[in-house]
Nucleic acid binder design. Structure first.
Lengths: 204, 204
DNA sequence: CAGATAAATTGGTCTGACCATTAACCTAAT
DNA sequence: ATTAGGTTAATGGTCAGACCAATTTATCTG
């Protein structure tokens, strides 16, 4: 007897849904049959159908709207990556590794935006910086910069790392430090900014 | 009233399970409370607990054994990757972001190890490379390089991204490509290696 | 003490019920 | 004819209970 035959219902439903999407050539935004319809068509309980749908939802492949239905959407791995990352981070107790990766991402965004910052954006950020308390400077500036790059995955992971790295002293730099950082980026001198940032990180 | 408060039960359960694992310092192979226990402790229905568990299971973080229980296991994205790859064929944007981050990490490891590779290690890797099938070259080489850096978090995140990125054509470079890559790293010419890698990534 | 048997535990699945949200429809006032 | 408001139907969200199947644990028996 083959062991492979004992597949859970929700896994078969998973397969069926996949087939359904392929057969019907569903595109992003298209609606799937209702949970009750699926249950009847696939000859399964609604709870099993839901287990499959929830799993697919966590993967980021579908979107569920209460009262409307279940819809296909363009693949957004952010949620699942976030979940997975928290597990990974949780078993990675080395603060050093977290910081190393965090610095890497921050350096990347500085380099990426080097010389790409408009005067308006620069002024706007600067005006907020001067009003912000010291302990919020780091998070604010980099959040804005990450947003500007448009890579949502990057910012997700960075936020995660930030959550896992202790709010350590080195992030408590002066306002002038972050003003200088921003200035360098605007002036297309990311190397200087990165260098300064690395110096702060290695102080620890 | 904030919209954020309307979170589904199964998502809260997800969080709670994560917290449970962190609080109890669970390791791979450790057992989670039974579905009924979780339902009672978290004040939720068993079906909601199951939805959360099935989702986590599909991600590859847990393993369930009929009659025994639910167990933590080291992340093995075999099933989710299969599901995802069938869905994402025409996906563009998020795939791009995954690749961008993946390239970033790979560039980092090349730069990090530049000029740091011993002759023994170099020869050893080379001897394996020549024997490996084309489709395994990329994963093998970078896995070894990441291991060499000693940053386990880096390699985990990278593996994660690799799982979420399609096994795309650009990874199917010749043996000579990866030999050249490795050579450059050994000779402290990471810039050349990174440049070559970037070129391959942007081909797509 | 060893093996067989029974009971308890746990995951797997289905059904039915009820609530909350949304969209569609209908009705009545303007 | 238009629109505002209410009703209805469909859909997802959640829970409780029942039963089955696999496994472990406790119990009994020789």
């Amino acid at each position: 007897m083959t062991k492979d035959t004992k597949s859970k219902v929700y896994q078969e439903v998973l397969e069926e849904i996949r087939n359904y999407i392929v057969d019907h050539q569903l595109q992003d935004g298209d609606r799937l049959p209702s949970e009750r319809e699926l249950a009847e068509q696939l000859n399964a309980g609604r709870s099993s159908v839901r287990e499959a749908l929830r799993a697919i939802e966590l993967l980021g492949l579908i979107e569920t709207r209460h009262g409307e239905g279940t819809f296909l959407r363009s693949y957004q791995p952010y949620y699942s990556v976030e979940i997975l990352s928290t597990f990974i981070l949780q078993e990675t107790r080395s603060q050093k590794e977290v910081l190393q990766l965090k610095l890497l991402l921050e350096s990347q965004v500085l380099s990426n935006l080097s010389g790409q910052i408009s005067m308006d954006f620069y002024k706007k950020l600067l005006s907020v910086i001067v009003e912000l308390p010291k302990e919020k400077l780091h998070t604010f500036l980099f959040t804005e910069l990450f947003k500007a790059t448009g890579n949502r995955l990057l910012i997700k992971i960075w936020h995660l790392l930030e959550g896992f790295s202790n709010p350590i002293s080195f992030e408590l730099q002066n306002h002038s430090f972050y003003e200088q950082l921003l200035f360098w980026v605007k002036e297309n001198k990311a190397e200087s900014a990165i260098e300064a940032l690395e110096k702060v990180y290695t102080l620890e």
